[in-house]
């Protein structure tokens, strides 16, 4: 792993972009890494586009500014796709999108031509596993397939610690099943 990894998450208020950024960070923390996870706060309302960030590092993180050049961009809501979504993402960066469309369609909408793109239908996966459209957890699985920032087991352990008491065993397992499915189904090109 590089010394400092920065992930930018795009979602809409209520889709769990903040939770996804935080769970990734916490799993990395459990694995002995240094972490930050923070949202970009604008007006807080359901449905509004929001960005959240995860930083993972082998060394203590002193940075306290926004993420300008993320290594990875994860798009939780496909309606947010536009060239602006890959702002600051270099050709070495990777874009991971929740969509039922092919990779080429994502490239066309974002003008992201050279870097790697991963696609997975995370909304459908969450409908199948959880029974409602919550694509944030499956997108964690998709990202971890594209780049193994943390081990899936570490992520599961953290999710269980956080979710079991709050939402019960059945829903916790459904979330984990969604992550697993997206991990298996993501296509990269």
């Amino acid at each position: 792993m590089q010394e400092l990894v920065e992930v930018r998450w795009h979602g809409r208020g209520g889709q769990g972009a903040k939770t996804a950024a935080q769970f990734l960070a916490e799993a990395a923390l459990d694995a002995g890494k240094f972490i930050q996870a923070f949202p970009e706060y604008g007006p807080e309302r359901a449905g509004a586009p929001i960005r959240t960030y995860t930083r993972i590092s082998e060394k203590p993180i002193n940075l306290h500014c926004g993420v300008v050049n993320p290594g990875y961009v994860v798009v939780i809501d496909p309606t947010l796709l536009s060239p602006a979504i890959v702002e600051g993402l270099s050709d070495q960066g990777i874009l991971v999108v929740n969509t039922n469309e092919p990779i080429e369609a994502v490239r066309k909408k974002t003008n992201f031509q050279k870097g790697k793109v991963g696609v997975v239908d995370a909304t459908q996966i969450s409908l199948d596993t959880l029974g409602r459209p919550m694509p944030n957890m499956p997108m964690l699985g998709a990202l971890l397939k594209v780049v193994p920032l943390v081990k899936l087991e570490d992520l599961y352990k953290n999710i269980k610690a956080k979710f079991l008491k709050k939402i019960g065993e059945e829903k916790t397992n459904a979330n984990i099943a969604g992550i697993k499915k997206a991990y298996e189904q993501v296509r990269v090109g």
């Binding site: 935080q22 972490i35 996870a37 923070f38 706060y41 993180i61 306290h64």
Partner: peptide, 12 residues
């Protein structure tokens, strides 16, 4: 402490 910058950022 700095509002949002640290108050709402998760760190270990």
């Amino acid at each position: 402490q700095d509002g949002f910058i640290t108050s709402h950022a998760v760190e270990g």
